[in-house]
Design a protein around this nucleic acid. Structure first.
Length: 795
RNA sequence: GCCGAAGUGGCGGAACUGGCAGACGCGCCGGACUCAAAAUCCGGUGGGGCUCACGCCCCGUGUGGGUUCGAUUCCCACCUUCGGCACCA
């Protein structure tokens, strides 16, 4: 027996697998799609150049499941790709020189090497990269399909502008009013921007949560993000303008308490009011100030506002109530106008107090019924809400309505390193899509990536000027690029047909492999990538490009690997290189350790203390299995004995943990227990079977050592061996340890037979001297028997 | 403020459906091997108390209450930590 040399055996088996194309999966020929496919996917990495422990956790989890399902006979697709567009490479190019493409491709090479080093079972034939024209050609093609259906459109909008990165950010990329990437305070700018109409799918995105097996908290986050509110749209008359102005409210029951009316500064009516109002100048100044500050600033401090000089008529009371403009009302939500009910809304009350506006109580908070509300007085809130809307509806002044918090997805980016938007602006034809046959619109080289307030592509005059595809006149290309979330909103559909040159993916192959059966990734993508991908699949299904309603059938979130209490990430530079760890302890040890330290869905503080213990375990396993292989008792399959029984129990435990419970740390502990027991006597009966079982069960975690030991045991190709099945007979026990309790406290334990009747078990309890001591002649009031477990005597 | 998750030895954690709290590992302590050390192997290790000893008793899963023969597990209230949303009408 040689000593355990992880480096040597890991390199050896990685070569064997590659030569055997062990983890490459073939597409089925047409008409022969077999049952039992499994599409395993982890979120694709941004190729930052180095793997960190978060990646190791993510992809090792996927690897365990890949091996587990493969060995259950499923056709497992498990690909890998690169989310290779995006700011970090561009910023690195600005900082250090070079081209983002070169930087990205160098990083990919390095990270791919590190992935190979860890021995993950990946189909490397299907690699895709967002920045590869063979890929982004189809991103552009899909954009055009959205454009044709008006699901991608252009509008002037206030956007989140990062002054440092000189680009627009999605709402999802703004954290506490700051740029998620660089931390600069985000400013408001009004720009022409591209949007995807994700709001048109708000209801479908909520409804189809029922179809998918996702963590409840992820669905909750999405539900809150979409923010569906049921209420009513009510019309308020503004006589001086001869107009009806709509408000959205969830509290129609408080209509009689609406004592003033507020418009958002961006509301379309405000301009006209400025023109015609006696205090137009004051209004104009206020609106200008309000528009300049956005988001966080707007929410901070005391409420501000200006009276417009106009009045609206409360449709319930017929009272003329003053119309104000105030920036606590948001244009993006509801109708951009509200009826203010200071009696029952905290914000309206604050405003009313500040500006001395009347407050009327219309709901008795004690019993939840209406007061001061004409014929609705005395009605409970729920009923009144319905009745008032119906009452207004009869007079054409209101109707039930639904409002969403979700906004359309703005995906224009004023940066270089992204997918070009295939659009040409023509003075005569307007916005003209680039014809499919002219795709891809290649990302040209530019001299200078530095942000200058306009996109880098806008400086490449030669590229920019292009004949209008429609009239042939002088057109100009769109110089913005796409948000990288567009690249990743469909990448999982490309793997099933990664090299298709005629279409983004064939309907047959995407419907065979899709949807992803098991997806793994961080919960931080709950309102970004995970929502965008669902939106894309819904649209693509309507386009009949595929036929499933949801992209990711089952979802698992790995926890954050933290270091020193902060989130570990490429941007913070606090990463531990898995590479070095693999060199010190071996890839198998790194893989085992990251899953052993705790539940995979829980955040962890990274520490290397303890990886030694995994190293010890692997050396122990190595030695004990070799001993068992040399003289592993008489035990063959089916033999009885405690070791064989323990092996079967371990099979049952590991299979249940991985397959049903989705926990990955306790299977390792279970195999350790088996090895500990085997180690007590490696020549005991059943030792060989126990050794084979331990090796077979640890294979998804530590495939290299498992393969080597499997050979030592005289077998071949463990990676394609069927997953072991526990023998039910071996799991059944004839005897068990009966727990004896007095008043719920354990007093004794005795060996009992599973065949014994309840009376016999009670008799055993009463026979125990320790139990007797605690009974102490007291009156027995109750006796509880749990067959197979315990007897509890209550005195 | 609203929504969600979590609090167990010195540490990471286990206990799945209400039934032996602390599996497995780290660390630590003791022993074997060694000239010595490392590595390895064996044993111990929640706290407190009683006992020469075999052992035995009490306390113990964030805090306080409740349900139950029995609660880490269920219910109520609270505390702490971490996430999500946040002037969303």
């Amino acid at each position: 027996m040689d000593t355990y040399d992880p480096k040597a055996i890991e390199a050896k088996w990685q070569r064997v697998w590659e030569d055997a194309r062990a983890f490459y999966v073939d597409d089925p020929p047409p008409g022969e799609e077999p049952a039992g496919k499994f599409y395993m996917l982890e979120m694709l990495p941004y190729p930052s150049g180095n793997l960190h422990m978060g990646h190791v956790l993510n992809y090792t989890l996927g690897d365990v499941l890949t091996h587990y399902h493969r060995r259950h006979g499923l056709h497992v697709l498990r690909p890998m790709g690169w989310d290779s567009f995006g700011l970090p490479a561009e910023n690195a190019a600005i900082r250090e020189g070079g081209h983002p493409r070169e930087i990205t491709e160098r990083n990919i090479e390095n990270i791919e090497r590190q992935m190979h080093r860890l021995g993950w079972a990946i189909d490397w034939d299907r690699v895709i990269a967002a920045h590869d024209p063979d890929y982004y050609r189809w991103t552009q093609w899909l954009f055009l399909r959205f454009f044709e259906r008006d699901l991608a459109y252009r509008k002037a909008a206030f956007v989140n502008w990062c002054p440092h990165d000189q680009t627009v950010l999605a709402n999802e990329q703004v954290i506490d009013g700051k740029c998620e990437r660089c931390g600069s305070i985000v400013e408001a700018r009004k720009l022409e921007q591209w949007f995807f109409k994700i709001t048109a799918y708000a209801d479908a995105l909520l409804r189809d949560h029922d179809l998918i097996d996702w963590p409840e908290r992820t669905k909750t986050i999405q539900r809150n993000w979409i923010g569906r509110s049921e209420g009513a749209e009510l019309l308020f008359r503004v006589d001086e303008l001869d107009l009806d102005v709509a408000v959205f409210t969830t509290r129609a029951d408080t209509l009689f308490g609406a004592t003033f009316f507020v418009l958002a500064p961006e509301h379309p009516l405000v301009d006209e009011m400025i023109e015609r109002s006696p205090n137009g100048e004051e209004l104009r100044t206020y609106v200008a100030h309000a528009l300049a500050k956005r988001g966080e600033q707007r929410a901070a401090g005391e409420k501000t506002g200006v009276f417009t000089g106009f009045f609206a008529t409360n449709p319930a009371t017929e009272a003329r109530i003053p119309v104000w403009v105030a920036d606590y009302v948001l244009m993006e939500y509801g109708t951009g106008a509200i009826m203010a009910v200071p009696g029952h809304d905290e914000r309206d009350r604050e405003f009313a107090e500040r500006f001395e506006l009347p407050v009327v109580e219309v709901v008795d908070e004690e019993d939840g019924t209406l007061v001061n509300s004409a014929q609705f007085s005395g009605m409970p809130v729920d009923e009144a809400t319905r009745e008032i809307v119906a009452w207004l509806g009869n007079r054409g002044r209101g109707r039930p309505a639904v409002s969403f918090r979700l906004r359309d997805w703005g995906f224009s980016r004023q940066r270089y390193w992204g997918c070009p938007i295939p659009i040409v602006y023509c003075p005569s034809c307007g916005i003209v899509p680039v014809p499919d046959d002219d795709l891809p619109v290649l990302l040209p080289d530019v001299d200078d990536y530095r942000p200058k307030g306009k996109p880098p592509l806008a400086s490449n005059e030669e590229w920019l000027r292009v004949p209008c595809p429609s009239c042939g006149g002088e057109g100009r290309r769109e110089a913005d690029t796409m948000d990288t979330f567009v690249d990743s909103a469909w990448y999982f559909l490309r793997y099933p047909d990664a090299h298709d040159e005629r279409e983004p993916f064939s309907r047959r192959l995407v419907d065979f492999w899709g949807p992803v059966d098991q997806y793994i990734g961080g919960i931080d993508h709950a309102t970004g990538h995970l929502l965008y991908s669902r939106f894309f699949v819904k649209v693509l299904r309507e386009l009949e490009l595929l036929d499933f309603p949801e992209p990711f059938q089952r979802l698992f979130h790995q926890g954050w690997v933290r270091q020193g209490g902060t989130k570990m990430s490429k941007s913070r530079g606090n990463v531990t290189a898995p590479d070095e760890l693999a060199d010190m302890y071996g890839a198998d040890a790194v893989r085992l350790y990251i899953l052993f330290v705790g539940p995979a869905d829980q955040d962890m503080d990274w520490t290397e203390e303890g990886i030694e213990g995994i190293g010890r375990f692997l050396r122990r396993l190595w030695r004990i299995v070799h001993e068992a292989a040399a003289d592993g008792g008489a035990g063959e399959d089916g033999d009885a004995g405690p070791l064989v029984r323990k092996a079967h129990e371990t099979i049952a435990k590991v299979s249940d943990d991985i397959g049903r419970r989705f926990v990955f740390n306790t299977p390792i502990a279970a195999v350790m227990e088996l090895v500990n027991e085997l180690g007590r006597d490696p020549s005991a009966p059943g030792a060989r079977f126990a050794a084979e079982t331990a090796v077979s069960l640890i294979q998804p975690y530590a495939p290299h050592i498992a393969e080597e030991l499997w050979s030592a045991l005289g077998h071949e190709r463990l990676w394609e061996q069927p997953w072991p099945v526990a023998d039910e007979d071996q799991l059944r026990r004839e005897t068990f340890e009966l727990v004896l309790q007095v008043n719920g406290r354990v007093r004794d334990r005795v060996e009992a037979s599973v065949d014994e009747s309840e009376e016999e078990l009670v008799a055993r309890a009463k026979a125990s001297p320790r139990v007797q001591q605690h009974l102490d002649g007291k009156e027995i009031r109750q006796t509880i028997v749990v067959p197979g477990k315990l007897v509890n005597i209550v005195v």
